[in-house]
Design a protein around this nucleic acid. Structure first.
Lengths: 204, 204
DNA sequence: CTTCATTTTTTTCATCCGAAAATTTTCCTT
DNA sequence: AAGGAAAATTTTCGGATGAAAAAAATGAAG
C-alpha cells in the first residue's frame, strides 16, 4: 500500500494539488486528460486508480470530481487570521484597518477557543520581554472580555500596546513585563481590543 | 454585494462548509436538495446563486460540484506538521515515532522555508529560557544541516533536547540558554534532528 | 391590502463525467 | 530475448449534474 509513486504518478498527484489549491476545484478525468495531452480519458482514470491504490488519494465512486486528499480530511478546521501592524483609534466594532498579512492555522493549535473573532498583531518593542514575548513576535488575540492576568492589546494614546491586564480590588490597570516600563493606570476608560490566546515566532 | 445573509442562506452555507470539511467533497445541487428535504433541485440551485451574488461563495459554470470558498483560494499552502513528544534514538531517516498530535499552518507563516521536511516538538524544561523558549512551547523544526547559532533539536543520551548549536574554530558544541545548564561537548558524534524555524505558544 | 424579495415547485434538457472492456505501446528488469 | 508492470488508446454506456423557463407559495414591510 505504501509503495513508492512512479514519476508519472508524482506528476499527476502534483497537478491534483496544484489545481485544487489554485482553482479550488479538483480536475475531472477529462481535464486531467487534456492537461497531460492524453488521447484518452481512461488514461487519467487509471492513474487515479493507481494513486488511490497507493493511498495518497481517496475517491468516491460515481461522484464527480470526487478526489480527496486524506491529510485534508484529518485536518482540523483552519482559521484565517488577519495580521495588523497597528490598530487605529476608532477600532473595536466596525472599522477594521487593512491587514498587512494573513495567518492560517488550525483552531486546535489555538487552544480550542474558536468562537470569538480573532486577529493578530506584530509585537514592537521589549515591554513584555519578561513574559517571553519578543520584538517581532506575532501575537494572536481573541475579542473577549479581559480577566485578571490576561495579556491584552489595549489602546493607549491612540496606539495599540500589549500589556498584562490586572484587576484587583475593583481597580484595573495595565502592567508591562519589563521593569523599565511603568504600570499604566487608565486615565478615563480602558479600551481592550483583544486577549492573547497564542503566540507565533519565526526563527531569525 | 456584502448584504447580510438570510437565515436560510446561512444554513446552506454552513452545510457547504461542513460537507466540504468532513467528507472532503462539495455537495451537488441534488445532495443539497435531499439534505434540506427540498422537493426540487432548483431550490438548491437558486440558493447557490444567491450565495454567489452575495460573494460568500464562487461558482464555475457548467462544472460539477464547482463551489469555491474565496477565503480558501487566497490562502497560502497549508503544511501539516506532526508533533512529537519525544524522539527516540533510532530516528533521523526512516523510523518516525507516533506523533502525539498535529499542527496545520500556512507555510508563509513558517518563514517560507518549505522545502525540507518539518516536524514539531513540545518543549520540556527551562534550559532555553533566555532565548525566550518556555516549558510547554511547541517548537517547529526543519530537517537540514545546522549552522552556527541555530537552535537545534539534538540527541543527547537517547533524549532529544533543544539547544543552541555553536560551531567555532572547527569545534562544534551545544549551548543551553540558561546559566544553570552547562554546555554540552559531544562525546563522539553530534546528531542533529532538526533546526528550529518557528515557535508556537498557547496562552495559559 | 399591496408590494416585493425570498423560497420552493414542476418539468425538461444538454452535457458533464465516471466507468468498463479489450488492446496496444513503452520501458524496465532479469 | 523474455516477462511483466506501467502507461496509454479506442470505443461505448449510463448515471450524475448543472441549467432554464414558468409559476406558485411564503413572509415581511409599507
Amino acid at each position: 500500500m505504501a509503495t513508492k509513486l512512479t514519476s508519472r504518478q508524482k506528476e499527476i498527484l502534483e497537478y491534483l494539488h496544484k489545481s485544487s489549491r489554485t482553482t479550488g476545484l479538483m480536475p475531472s478525468t477529462r481535464e486531467l486528460q487534456h492537461y497531460f495531452g492524453f488521447a484518452s480519458q481512461t488514461a487519467a482514470m487509471s492513474h487515479l486508480r493507481a494513486l488511490e491504490k497507493k493511498g495518497v488519494i481517496q475517491r468516491v465512486p460515481g461522484k464527480a470530481r470526487a478526489v480527496i486528499f486524506p491529510e485534508e480530511l484529518d485536518r482540523e478546521e483552519i482559521r484565517d487570521i488577519p495580521i495588523y501592524g497597528r490598530i487605529a483609534a476608532g477600532y473595536g466594532d466596525s472599522t477594521a484597518p487593512e491587514p498587512e498579512g494573513c495567518l492560517s492555522i488550525d483552531i486546535t493549535s489555538l487552544g480550542g477557543r474558536g468562537k470569538n473573532e480573532t486577529f493578530a498583531l506584530r509585537v514592537r518593542g521589549e515591554s513584555m520581554i519578561d513574559a517571553h514575548i519578543c520584538d517581532g513576535d506575532t501575537v494572536i488575540l481573541e475579542k473577549r472580555e479581559a480577566r485578571n492576568g490576561d495579556i491584552v492589546a489595549a489602546l493607549i494614546d491612540g496606539e495599540t500596546t500589549l500589556k498584562r491586564f490586572i484587576s484587583q480590588k475593583g481597580k484595573t490597570y495595565l502592567q508591562a513585563e519589563n521593569p523599565k516600563f511603568p504600570d499604566l493606570i487608565p486615565t478615563d476608560e480602558l479600551i481592550i481590543q483583544g486577549v492573547m490566546i497564542a503566540l507565533l515566532r519565526k526563527a531569525a
